[in-house]
Design a binder for these strands. Structure first.
Lengths: 338, 338
DNA sequence: GAAGCTAGTTGAAACGTTTCGGCGATGTCA
DNA sequence: TGACATCGCCGAAACGTTTCAACTAGCTTC
């Protein structure tokens, strides 16, 4: 900018005025400045600008795993929405590790992001203090955090799971296994509650032996299904409360030579692009990823602009049960009902 | 930092020395500064730091579509690798649009990223001039750019496709369709060359009627397969040179009531997590995503550190054919060969 | 013809760091 | 005791912007 000013024979202030359109500059000066910018190859330095302005036009985004198809899509929607708004987004994957998350958020805050969208991980204490210590606005997605007064957009997990499990009981299943990830997360607690609610609704007893908790990974799903399917009185249906684990479940069925849906019905949380292409076509609970991403972006942009009401807003969206071919009445049931 | 200095009753310079460990500070001062940092809640401002230092410890990453499973995994690997190195990454999706890409790279450069990793899109002219005009290092992944002397890590696409199509000819297929994305991209040209080479190798004539070029989207794959499969002399196998399109292909087969692999064999580029879970289990060309991401990161970090030799380096990795259940000899062939 | 406006321009301060030269005080060596 | 390092600390300049008050011409208006 100094160089441009020299070449164009104007002051730095005038160049700035021209670049930002913040004040009138004469046609003559305009022309010289435009020329100078071209010859010098000037490009404005956003970090100096940010320092002066106190805004970086950059936001942070952290998710547990970008390879989880739910997060893949949410990240996709969010990055594109911010892109349209002229913001850059810094992406981090916590890999479900608390220490990663703390460090990443520290890094983001140090870089003076204008705001953050966080799909939280792990326990609350540390996160609460981080959020409390900064004035940068946070928006929580997917997972809430008790005691944190941040905007949030989440799913009505309880209802969604209850509907899916209710669908299974409606088909006649009475032994429905439940496979899920860690318990420390609001999402998982709500989903478990939905499972129990659906059982109760159908007059079925909750059997702890049919519940398997893992750590969100495919191999945990595999191990869980292996155990469940070799039980003396094995379940006739499995609901997986997250997507990576269902891959393991399906592989276990394959390795055990069990057919889905003939021998076991399977349904899971989170839709994915291949769900209706291959066999069995997977029955899933589809989250409104587009809406989640766009709402989260909108909430954060409003906070950044300062136009939002001060009390935290919480959006709860509804999931949708995508009924496909992976669930069927348990064998023997049709006869029984006839 | 000014506040910290005041509370600790030392100069700003001393606080800086303490924070960065760049000079000795007495135990007494250390203690006061530590206390002051806590009471003030000080966090260093990375943008001021970047301005002074001329380095942001931030890199840019642009890919066409993060939902394409190949890019999902590469992005995952790259973000984690940079995270470990203490860098933040700004992610952009070009959505295969040239204008997006230009604008995003401009934004990134303006933000003074220390370097960029780019999975390029579209034609070369504009991109060449952008790369030429900046001194920030670029690393190209997946797609090359003629005339740009940047480091790159790519796949040996020609060999990979030749191997896959060779596998199909080996099974006895003589009419093998080829479905792919746009032609302006090095990757696609190489893959097409691999297809032709494999045909030639098997003594088969190239038939333009069996080639369908679309725009990387599922619906293009669908349309392509619909046309191909209603041809009077329809192909017995389809190779899709990219992943999103194969979803469309499979849906078309489903809608036409064609069984894979009994009626048609299908193979495609890029492996995906569900490939060996459902039926048919997909035969794919698997790219070494882990290696691609890590190598690209390493190349860029070396450039940033200035330790790299000055001439551009090009890494070409090999793909791996994952043979699964989606390909079989064409019907009638077994008899003929017996 | 004086007063007042307006459009265009400018110098300088500020944003929060890092860094360098310098300056006392203390210790060491001859 | 004097010369000389060494240590801990500090003041101030610099990084590249934005912004504000101030200034100059040139016009308009009475």
């Amino acid at each position: 900018m100094l160089d441009v000013a020299r070449v164009a024979q104007v002051s730095i202030a005038t160049v700035s005025a021209f670049v930002n359109g913040s004040a009138n500059v004469s046609p003559a000066a305009t022309q010289r400045i435009e020329g100078a910018i071209r010859t010098v190859g000037y490009q404005r330095n956003a970090v100096a600008r940010s320092l002066k302005l106190g805004r970086t036009h950059t936001v942070g985004l952290t998710v547990p795993h970008i390879t989880n198809p739910f997060f893949t899509e949410v990240v996709s929607v969010i990055t594109q929405a911010f892109d349209r708004a002229g913001y850059a987004v810094m992406l981090f994957c916590t890999d479900e590790h608390l220490s990663n998350q703390d460090e990443q958020i520290r890094l983001l805050l140090e870089r003076m992001v204008d705001g953050l969208i966080v799909a939280r991980v792990g326990e609350d204490e540390r996160f609460r203090s981080i959020v409390g210590a900064t004035k940068a606005p946070f928006v929580l997605i997917d997972r809430l955090c008790e005691g944190v007064d941040a905007d949030a957009v989440v799913l009505d997990n309880r209802t969604a799971v209850a509907e899916a499990v209710g669908y299974l009981t409606g088909l006649g299943h009475r032994r429905i296994a439940y496979v899920a990830g860690g318990t420390g997360i609001s999402t998982m607690q709500e989903r478990a509650a939905g499972y129990r609610a659906a059982l109760e609704e159908a007059g079925l007893a909750f059997d702890p032996a049919l519940v398997r908790l893992g750590d969100f990974h495919e191999m945990d799903g595999y191990a869980a299904a292996m155990q469940l399917m070799t039980l003396p009185d094995r379940p006739t249906a499995v609901f997986s409360a997250n997507n990576p684990m269902v891959v393991g479940v399906m592989k276990a069925l394959r390795d055990l030579g069990l057919n889905c849906p003939k021998d076991v019905s399977v349904a899971c949380f989170d839709d994915f692009p291949f769900a209706d292409v291959f066999h069995p076509q997977m029955t899933t609970v589809r989250q409104p990823v587009q809406a989640i991403g766009e709402q989260a972006t909108a909430l954060l942009l409003e906070r950044i602009a300062g136009t939002a009401a001060s009390e935290p807003r919480r959006l709860t969206l509804r999931g949708r049960l995508m009924i496909r071919g992976s669930c069927a009445p348990p064998s023997g049931w049709a006869a029984q009902s006839a």
